[in-house]
Amino acid sequence: MSSSSGAGNGQFETATVANGCFWGTQHIYDKHFKGRLEKTEVGYTGGKTESPSYRQVCMGTTNHAEACRITFDPAKVGYAELIEFFFRTHDPTQMNGQGPDRGTQYRSAIFYHSPEQKEIANKVMEEIKDKHPLVRQGGKIATEITEAGKWWDGEDYHQEYLDNNPGGYECPTHRLWW
């Protein structure tokens, strides 16, 4: 789904983010924005392999990120709010990993769907430098901001994984940092 305009008239936009294990990313967005998002789903983007599987992505050879695609109505929640929340819920100073999870599939990335989203993502990233405790302590932001490419849905058992498996593995960096 591509980004579209027309807030409040049934037109939705898409935000795509990656910040570690996609289970936790989807779970924390769904929990925080309950009733304000149209849909979230997990999958793979940013790599070179056609139609990758979870197993292939975890091997680290596809360069895909485990990502969360968020469909939202800009009349209910703005893109900037979704991106600030992205930074609030992980460690953006980690290169290719979050907590104990390591590899390019766990990188911190924003995949923008329009020039406006790119501009907003860069602006929010600049603004959080004074807010995020790890950045204020001297950490450098490793988050990549890149144009959204092809998306592949994650396997069915990954969708809403933590809702379907209470107590399942959740990356310790998926929490509110401020």
Rank of each mutant, 00 (worst) to 15 (best):
W177P: 01
G43S: 14
C171E: 03
C21S: 06
K118T: 00
W23L: 05
T89C: 15
K39I: 01
P166N: 13
W177H: 13
Q117F: 13
H132K: 05
H158C: 11
R102T: 07
E127D: 13
Y54E: 01
W177M: 05
R55F: 14
E38L: 11
P74K: 13
G154Y: 08
V124L: 06
A67K: 09
Q94R: 10
E155A: 12
D73C: 15
F85Y: 13
Q11H: 15
E147F: 03
A18F: 14
F85E: 01
T146N: 03
A142G: 08
H113R: 05
E81P: 00
G97M: 06
M1Q: 09
F33Y: 09
R36T: 02
W151G: 12
N122I: 02
F87G: 07
H113S: 11
K129E: 14
W152C: 03
G139T: 05
K140N: 14
V135T: 01
E144G: 05
L134Q: 03
R102L: 07
A109R: 01
R88G: 02
S5Y: 04
T143D: 08
V42M: 05
I70N: 09
T61I: 09
P133K: 08
Y44I: 13
A18W: 13
A148W: 07
C58W: 09
T45Y: 03
H132M: 10
S108V: 04
T173E: 08
Y44H: 12
W152I: 10
V42N: 07
A148S: 12
E38G: 08
V42R: 11
E155G: 11
P74I: 12
G43V: 15
W177V: 07
S3D: 14
H90G: 12
Y157A: 12
G24P: 02
G97E: 01
N9D: 14
Q117L: 15
A7I: 01
V57A: 00
G24N: 04
G99W: 10
K34P: 00
L82H: 09
W23M: 05
Q26M: 02
Y112C: 07
A67T: 12
H132E: 14
T71L: 14
M125H: 07
R136K: 15
I70Y: 10
E127S: 08
G78E: 09
P74H: 15
C68E: 08
I110G: 04
K31C: 06
I28R: 06
R88T: 06
E41N: 05
S2C: 08
Q98F: 11
T14S: 09
S4K: 08
G60C: 12
I145R: 00
H113I: 12
E41K: 11
T93M: 01
G154P: 03
Q98G: 10
D101V: 00
D73L: 15
F22S: 06
V135W: 02
P133N: 04
W178R: 01
P172C: 04
D91H: 05
G149S: 08
A109Q: 01
T89V: 15
P100E: 09
H158D: 04
H64D: 07
G168E: 08
W151K: 14
R175A: 04
T62R: 10
K39N: 10
W178E: 13
N19I: 00
E144N: 04
K131D: 09
Y29I: 06
